[in-house]
Write a protein that binds this DNA or RNA. Sequence first.
DNA 1: CTAATTTCTGAACATGCATTCAGAAATCAG
DNA 2: CTGATTTCTGAATGCATGTTCAGAAATTAG
Lengths: 216, 216
Amino acid sequence: MHSEIRSANQPKPSFIETARRAQIIDCAVEVIAELGFAQASLAQIAKRAGVSTGVILYYFAGKDDLIREVGVHVFTTGRSSIEPLVQQQLDARSALRTFIEASVAYIAANPKKVLAIMNILRAGRSDGGTLKIDPTVYQPRQIGFRNILEWGQRDGEFRTFSVAVMVETIVEALDAIPSQLAADPSLDLDAYAKELVELFDRATRADTPVQELRVR
Amino acid sequence: MHSEIRSANQPKPSFIETARRAQIIDCAVEVIAELGFAQASLAQIAKRAGVSTGVILYYFAGKDDLIREVGVHVFTTGRSSIEPLVQQQLDARSALRTFIEASVAYIAANPKKVLAIMNILRAGRSDGGTLKIDPTVYQPRQIGFRNILEWGQRDGEFRTFSVAVMVETIVEALDAIPSQLAADPSLDLDAYAKELVELFDRATRADTPVQELRVR
DNA sequence: CTAATTTCTGAACATGCATTCAGAAATCAG
DNA sequence: CTGATTTCTGAATGCATGTTCAGAAATTAG
């Protein structure tokens, strides 16, 4: 008899099961990054993994489920590499700078993962209703930036501006990087990060009081 | 006998031909904006236009050709409503501000057109090789911003920064608006434009010399 | 070793799509 | 009015894809 689709509350996911799932997710990431979301068929992913398409459907409830898990995987690893660095900052300006730098560093370290995610998200957004990835997966980043910006405004480090617009602008600036990097792998991401840090530092910081600028 | 596909150098495009083409393009814009690019089948577009799918293929060489013409149409009307305003500015800061304001105003006036274009471009970018729209159609905007930024740097109005990164950031900030507007039609675009103008003015402008800031 | 269970295969199926095309309908020319 | 041309139809075609499934192969349990 055939076993039912695995769900998370199953007693023991066997070793081979977790290994296969991870392998399939990795291959999905590569194919989606290299061929684009539209060309990333189950057949292509299966071929990359060296299995038949049936195996994918044996471990995942369907293509949408696989895509969802790819999203969770990438965002989870991203958060774990970025959030700790941000949380140990003592002021909002440093936190903003660190968040941007760490985000670019994560892109540099995982170009395929982030490109795959961007392809998925873009396809979802250009697709009308059928969102591929749950907002709770990618919204923490927006919330993180929002908290930092509100923090800085509260403390007077930042000027008054629309936090929503600023968050959107920052996130879009970061999300544009993966495809640029794919188009030109020699792109200097360190320099790119420095530019963004400077750009958004100037865009956010409060005007220095005039009296402090007086010379002598 | 069947007539061949029309090409631009044909002697006389009949009245009904240009009318049908325009009508089909308009319907394609609406369907792509409302349903998303992936769901925008020829059948849907034909249904919206009240014709059979064959008509679309009679006036356009294929779906790709239709999409391309949608892109040309939207970008052409956009340029004609933005460029004249920008060109009459006398300094780079004003030109940058005007470009951003006019871009947002065009979005406000043509929400479906710009959303459709964004859906097409996003689908193309998330798609790997198969770009839907020719770069010569959408690159003039980047070039326009680049020229303004280089102008401002040359004149000393702007500080030193990477023009490429700044252009990318500005364009992405603008391109994020249509989908936000679609998600929340009550979005205040005037306020949004003001925020972006202030943001990028601060991000680009040269540091005011200290002596000019001295009070009295 | 044998039987049960897990894992995997590959063909079959269903669906949606762009495109083709033979010919109908409408329009135009003379 | 009549024949030629333009415009349009809708069924047929071919293709790609996600999904199902009966059973083979491999692994594990006893």
